[in-house]
């Protein structure tokens, strides 16, 4: 998937940029002034480009002991509950998309940037656009869960604990 692959590339870019700054500053007396902005920007890209894939493979953080028990004892009710949860999650991602879209339009119109002029600046609108598209993709994946009901049988351990 394109979003996933590009999100993955950003991780590599992140490692490269920060190391470049360390070396350029330490050895060549030429720090890269955009390091902070590029790092911030890549965080948004990593998170929102990867999130749909996390949802697709069913690895979003949850505690599904009760749901698993329900599925075994009362398969129909269990499925109904799982669908309800995915529907609510889809609704939440729609809310995110609805909240972010006007932000994107505004940033696009005003060409708003972050950073310090003359030092380093980067435009806001790509950030907002990525979040909007990500929220749309996440919605699609939650809805797909309802129609396929797969991918949520593996243990969920993504919050890194």
């Amino acid at each position: 998937m394109a979003a996933n692959a590009s999100g993955t590339l950003v991780v590599v870019v992140l490692i490269a940029v920060v190391n470049y700054d360390i070396i350029a500053r330490g050895i060549f007396n030429k720090p890269f002034h955009g390091a902070v902005e590029v790092v911030q920007f890549s965080m948004v890209l990593i998170v929102f480009l990867q999130l749909p894939d996390v949802i697709r493979v069913g690895r979003l953080t949850r505690s599904d002991g009760f749901l698993t028990v329900m599925r075994h004892r009362r398969p129909a009710a269990g499925r109904w509950m799982a669908n309800g949860i995915d529907a609510m999650s889809a609704l939440f991602m729609v809310l995110v998309a609805v909240a972010i879209w006007p932000e994107f339009l505004e940033m696009w119109d005003t060409k708003d940037y972050f950073g310090v002029p003359g030092v380093f600046t980067a435009p806001w609108w790509p950030v907002k656009l990525v979040i909007f598209l990500s929220a749309c993709l996440c919605t699609v994946h939650f809805i797909l869960h309802i129609f396929t009901r797969t991918g949520d049988d593996i243990p969920h351990q993504e919050s890194g604990s």
């Binding site: 500053r25 007396n29 030429k30 720090p31 002034h33 390091a35 902070v36 310090v116 003359g118 030092v119």
Partner: peptide, 25 residues
């Protein structure tokens, strides 16, 4: 001149005319 100076925001630009001085954010 030729040294590294820590700064933040606009004041990094105060160093632009000093020979070889590098602002570090």
């Amino acid at each position: 001149e030729g040294s590294k100076v820590a700064g933040a925001g606009m004041n990094l630009r105060y160093l632009e005319g000093i020979d070889g001085a590098a602002g570090v954010r």
